[in-house]
Design a protein around this nucleic acid. Structure first.
Lengths: 135, 135
DNA sequence: ACTTTACCTTCCAGTTGAAGGAAGGTTTAT
DNA sequence: ATAAACCTTCCTTCAACTGGAAGGTAAAGT
């Protein structure tokens, strides 16, 4: 299977698949024309990567997950640990974004949004803030 | 004021301040020793940037906000539009992360996390999925 | 057979927003 | 005098791709 077909099957762009090869995530065979040749196994791997990436795992975490996946003697605890760590990072990220959202929402709500220059949003951004170091 | 002091005052690392200069966000004066010299105005701008960045505005959005801030004849509607667009992006991002979180949470919960190899997390990542394109 | 179109190849540059470090000049403190 | 704490510029690296150029190959149309 050529890279185009592998892309279609895996849901990953061809560019990305080449990139994954470059960083050692996957190693397709090569045909006589030097075209990459993907087996169903390869496509399976690609889909694994696609799914893991879509859940927000980093490339490095994907690498670890793949290696666990291919390790028959793995302990599910190791997988769970990875997944749980990632879950916590996501929750952390959500909390940060939610905090930004709350502040922004207030600012947006407090702004008239008309032709006048007066703007609580800019006022907030520009406010000196409580300088803890005195002055 | 030297860059170190400006860093302390603004809450931005000196490295970042130099970077902001490189990309044209701020233009400090230079002393005879070629050291950058920041006025209170400059520091004020830096703090503006710090605050906007902390709310997740991109550098480019910061640029626009700064330019609105310095434009006496601005319309608050323009600021509100920018802020609102950003707010929507944040909410979008939160929704994506929340969706990842929900899936991951289920997976983590379903995994024993013991010494056995069997692991629903990997099973999920590896599952072929419903192939919509037939076969 | 010829041509167009649709693939494929490699390589290089750009993206975002910095952080890290080397090599060296300056200033301040001891 | 000398050490430390600054400052300077320049270059490299990070994640995870994406886009494009220049060129080779294959399949389809005429």
């Amino acid at each position: 299977m050529n890279i185009g077909a592998a892309a279609t099957e895996s849901g990953l762009p061809a560019k990305t698949i080449r990139y994954y090869e470059e960083i050692g995530l996957i190693n397709p065979d090569r045909g006589e024309n030097s075209y990459r040749d993907y087996s169903d196994q390869h496509v399976h791997k690609l889909r694994f990567l696609q799914r893991a990436r879509s859940l927000g795992f980093s490339i490095d975490e994907c690498r670890q997950l793949m290696s666990l996946y291919e390790d028959d003697s793995r302990a599910s605890a190791d997988v769970k640990f990875l997944a749980n760590k990632h879950l916590e990072e996501i929750e952390q990220k959500i909390a940060e974004l939610a905090s930004m959202r709350d502040v922004l929402k207030n600012l947006v709500n407090s702004c008239h949004g008309d032709a006048r220059a007066e703007c609580p949003i800019l006022d907030d951004l520009a406010r000196t803030g409580a300088k803890l170091h005195g002055n």
